[in-house]
Design a binder for these strands. Structure first.
Length: 256
DNA sequence: ATGGTTGCTTAGCAA
């Protein structure tokens, strides 16, 4: 069995003790992080190494930043899309392990529909599609995990009427997300349960967590060969308890 | 009604 986790930590240094707790509690083979909010040199490599992991890091000052932690280093890694677009945002990291390719993605939030950030988000998702088609094959054993900042369906939203046409839920975002799936990926959580609630993010504002006003926006997308080996996919809600949690919960994937 | 909180960086932005 292999256990792979994705978690938007919302600052890896603020959440360091919680990160070490997740590593100890779940003992994952691979852990993808988003929103590090630090440069490469600011990543807590020593503490992570002491826990038995090493980290491939794509950092950035103040914002964004993604990482892939593993017990053994990947054979190869790639930062970003390797395309010609000039974009300083650290939002995508690919790591090739023997028999499995893992991608940690932090899709742009988009702020609000119709804004510049919204169109940047739609373009970013289109770039992700191009990247997948150019650098990967649906025949590969591939897991694309991360914060997609899209709730794929109304089932993934605590109050669909309130969120209708809002950021994270708009038709164009959902269509752009479906284009990513059309590469040859399946939503692991939904593959295992068509109806289950699986919120992974709650707005800090207005007590989102205490009211369970959540959205399912952190996802694990698998190619067919990986999807066929799915055992479990679940949200670690316990991580939200106690002082200073992230506004996202970890999503855990188990494959045979 | 455009609220509310958190993090980074230093009053404003991003989420």
């Amino acid at each position: 069995m292999q256990k792979i986790i994705t978690w938007n930590v919302n600052s890896v240094n603020v959440r360091l003790e919680r990160l070490l707790g997740v590593l100890a509690r779940h003992a994952p083979d691979i852990l993808c992080l988003q929103e590090l909010k630090c440069v490469d040199e600011g990543f807590p490599h020593a503490e992570v190494a002491a826990a038995g992991y090493q980290a491939a890091v794509f950092g950035q000052k103040a914002y964004n930043g993604v990482a892939i932690l593993s017990r053994q280093p990947p054979v190869e890694m790639l930062r970003g899309f390797a395309d010609a677009v000039d974009d300083p945002a650290a939002r995508l990291l690919t790591a090739w392990f023997p028999g499995l390719t893992v991608m940690s993605a932090y899709v742009p939030n988009g702020q609000a529909t119709g804004t510049d950030k919204y169109y940047y988000k739609l373009n970013w998702l289109a770039r992700l599609c191009r990247y997948l088609r150019r650098h990967h094959s649906p025949q590969d054993a591939l897991l694309l995990l991360g914060d997609f900042n899209v709730a794929p369906a109304d089932l993934d939203v605590h109050d669909p009427a309130q969120w209708r046409d809002k950021i994270l839920c708009s038709d164009r975002e959902r269509a752009a997300f479906q284009e990513v799936l059309s590469f040859g990926l399946v939503d692991a959580f939904r593959r295992l349960d068509e109806a289950k609630e699986g919120y992974t993010w709650w707005d800090y504002r207005a007590g989102g967590w205490s009211r369970n006003h959540g959205l399912r926006i952190d996802l694990a997308l698998a190619t067919v060969s990986v999807a066929d080996k799915l055992m479990r996919c679940y949200v670690d809600l316990g991580e939200l308890e106690g002082e200073k949690p992230s506004d996202h919960a970890p999503l855990i994937v188990e494959i045979s």
